[in-house]
Amino acid sequence: MSTLPVEQTLDCRGLSCPLPILKTKKTVNSMADGEVLMLLTTDPGSPGDVAAWAKKTGNKVLTSQAEAGVYTFYIKKTLLRGMV
């Protein structure tokens, strides 16, 4: 398991798409720029969903791993610069 400093943890184990992404969006929106969220999911579609969401929103997936059917993502909130 990573030793990254984490401001919040979101446990979405047992939830199916689209709930992990919807809950991630809500949680990240409540965080300050630069804070890190640790997201736990069991949805096998999560790696692709999280990557697509991060690319679309400008947030950064610092690291991810899969172990024993649990996907763990460390997501850094990054405000989109230059957007009005």
Rank of each mutant, 00 (worst) to 15 (best):
T42C: 09
N29R: 13
K23E: 14
G82Q: 10
M31D: 00
S30D: 13
N59K: 11
D49A: 13
A68I: 00
L4Y: 11
T27Y: 00
A52C: 12
G48F: 10
T3K: 07
G82K: 11
K76P: 00
A68L: 14
V28I: 13
P18E: 14
A54H: 04
V50Q: 00
W53I: 04
L40E: 12
I21R: 13
L40M: 05
Y74H: 13
D49N: 12
N29M: 10
E67P: 08
D33P: 02
T41D: 08
D43E: 12
W53N: 14
E67I: 06
K23W: 07
S46Q: 10
T72G: 05
T57G: 11
P47T: 07
R13S: 05
K56N: 12
T63P: 08
V6A: 08
I75V: 10
D11H: 04
E67Y: 09
E35P: 09
S2L: 14
I75N: 06
R81W: 04
F73W: 08
A52Y: 04
T24G: 00
T42I: 13
G34L: 03
C17Q: 12
V36T: 12
T42M: 11
Q65G: 15
T41P: 04
V70E: 03
P5M: 09
V50D: 05
P20M: 10
V6P: 02
T57C: 02
A66I: 14
S2C: 05
Q8S: 09
T78S: 15
D49I: 02
V6C: 02
L39W: 01
A32T: 13
E7Q: 14
Y71D: 06
M1Y: 02
W53M: 15
Q8I: 01
T9P: 01
E7D: 13
T57L: 04
D11F: 04
S16I: 03
L15D: 08
T63S: 10
T27H: 01
M31C: 02
T78Q: 15
S16H: 13
L37E: 07
P20D: 11
G58T: 05
I75R: 08
M1G: 09
V50K: 05
N29P: 01
L39T: 00
M83L: 15
T42R: 11
M83E: 15
T24I: 00
T63R: 12
V36L: 06
M31W: 04
D33L: 12
E35A: 13
M83R: 15
L15S: 00
P47V: 02
I75Q: 03
K77S: 01
Y71A: 01
D11E: 06
R13Y: 06
C12N: 14
L80P: 01
L4V: 11
K77Y: 10
S2G: 06
D11L: 01
L79C: 00
T3Y: 08
S16G: 05
K60Y: 03
M1S: 03
L15R: 07
M31L: 06
Y71K: 05
G45Q: 14
L37G: 08
D49W: 10
E7Y: 02
D33V: 07
M38P: 06
N59T: 13
C12R: 00
T3M: 10
P47G: 10
L79I: 03
G34S: 09
S30C: 02
G48C: 02
K25P: 00
G34A: 06
A52P: 01
T63N: 09
